[in-house]
Amino acid sequence: MAKFLLKRLLLAVPVVVGISVITFVLLYFLPADPARMYAGPNATVDTVNRIRHQLGLDQPVWVQYGRYVSRAVQGDLGYSYRLQMPVSQALASRFPYTLELTLAGIFVELLIGLTSGIAAALRRGSWVDSASMLLALLGVAAPPFWLGLMFLYLFAYKAGLFPLGGAGGLSHLVLPALTAGLGGAAWYARMSRSSTLDILHADYVRTARAKGLPGYRVLFKHVLRNAMNPIVTMAGMDIPWFISGVVLVEIVFGWPGVGRLAVDAVQTADIPLIMGTVIFTAMMVVVSSVLIDVAQAWLDPRVRTD
């Protein structure tokens, strides 16, 4: 197991390095001048040149990259021009929010997706089925920023049930989590419906019924346990998807997460912060996919021998 884990982690290194090189080179060719962005429009050309030199932006790109990497491996991701604080500090203060929203979003998608999907399968062809499949269609089709604004307008502004954006207690979390989770819920609804339907027709379910087990035991012990298998894998894969994908939700709700940080950084050509958010997100994606692999290997010995 340790060997498997090590192998997986080693494979992750070239991924992170590759992403950092690509991002760095792309940023180097960015048409905006970061020194000018830092200095502001009215700074004299002298001031801008001096700042460019002080930030090391007048060095060749490989020198800049080399310097960046040698600091990064020591945990120093540089100093954000825009926020005037170490990038690592900015990430550390924002990541908990993104994680909170990610977990809440996954909870929402599972809760809504599975219950409606399974209900639809059990009452196939009924109004429950049509309603939940229609909902799923809407969930997939609605863009999250639109959904977020609609939720804010209806549930926060009109009905006054929730605060109008920002982070804080549980009441602040409900609408962003719903917005982030609803699109995914739609997928889970469709998936759990079809996999439940498949299993409902499986021989072992018929056998279980035939031997006279009560309905709920058939459902929980035989149907759902088997239907859950692909769903657990999918939920694991959702973590990196959410971490990198909740940007729009964060912006609409003013949620102080890493996604919003990245957008701010891009808008202001804040190179250390762009690099920091990209590499951090890449690492999170890599780490969570390693964890999923490990979990799968633990659950299913066949994976280990691949």
Binding site: L152, Y153, Y157, L164, G165, G166, V252, G254
Partner: peptide, 11 residues
């Protein structure tokens, strides 16, 4: 307060 979209701020 920061990070508030102008549309939301107006509401």
């Amino acid at each position: 307060q920061v990070g508030v979209a102008p549309e939301v701020a107006l509401l």
